[in-house]
Amino acid sequence: MKNIISMLLFTAGLTLSAQVGINTDSPKSTLDVNGDLNLRNKIVVLNVTDNTLSQGNNDQLLVSQGEGYPPIWKSLRIPEYEPNKFYLIFNNSFSDKTGVKFTNSEQSSIVSKNTAFVKGADISNLPGFKRITGLTQPISVFSTESKTYFQFETVVQANLPVNGTPDISIDYACGIFVDNKLVNLRQRNLKASSASNTFITHNQIGIISNLSKGTHTVSVACSRLGSYRTAADIVLAIGTNASTNINSFITQSSLKVDVYEIPQIFNPITN
């Protein structure tokens, strides 16, 4: 009889009280258990869209969606890794339609390209380089052993006249930077052709090994290096158009970043 009365009193307490504490006099939620919890049957979650109860599937986890939202069942996926092998851990791609332009007076003042264009050169020591804004983005590295690949593509155009003799042309360079340090550079020449307003496709691939763990900033910057028999009004455009025979959709830039690592940190993944 005492047990029955105790159960009735406990049930009444659950009904009357907004918060119930077990082994605590100051519960902080609807049910606050201060101690071990042993479940012998099942946990179900209310689906608020159709008011059904979900028990989840085998090997699923109950995951919080944040304050004010009910938890949901998620499947745990832990990829299998072989020791000392590289795996694609981070990859992303970015695009930009704004690009950069250079007038005849914005030509780089770099005299010795042989000493200036070296791996690790800071962008502040490369006068005349302009960043392509939309390609400045963060990337993540989780291991001390990694290989990061960059693939940059854009269109380069100048409002050049029809070519003559000797050639009418412009030298330019584009560099890939990580944390403002040069990791890859390509120098090319845009030469006038038999038609005016010449444009070419520029492709560039770079790689750097063993970036430090953490977040880094990748960027692309270009420069006008030299001009040959060009008039003062000739504009060099990289990632944008210098004339109306092409548009910003055609000339847009893209940058793809892939980070391959020997895994050292294993983050559980749910879906």
Rank of each mutant, 00 (worst) to 15 (best):
L236D: 01
N34T: 11
Y228S: 15
V257R: 03
L76D: 06
N38G: 02
L14A: 14
I168S: 02
N247K: 08
Q157D: 07
S124W: 06
T30R: 08
V48E: 14
G35W: 08
L31C: 09
S64G: 15
G134V: 04
V178R: 00
T133H: 10
P71E: 08
A12E: 14
F266D: 06
L53S: 12
R229L: 14
Q55M: 14
R229P: 06
P83W: 10
T215S: 13
F177E: 02
K97M: 15
L185Q: 02
E67M: 10
Q65Y: 13
T98D: 11
A18P: 11
F86P: 00
T136D: 12
T201C: 05
P127M: 09
V45R: 08
L126E: 02
G128E: 04
N51Y: 15
G128M: 08
N163W: 01
L225Y: 03
K113C: 07
G56Q: 07
P166G: 04
G21M: 06
F266H: 14
Q157P: 04
N104D: 09
K119P: 04
T15V: 15
I5M: 13
C222Y: 01
G56R: 02
N34R: 07
E106R: 06
D25L: 01
T11Q: 15
F142I: 05
K101I: 08
A232L: 12
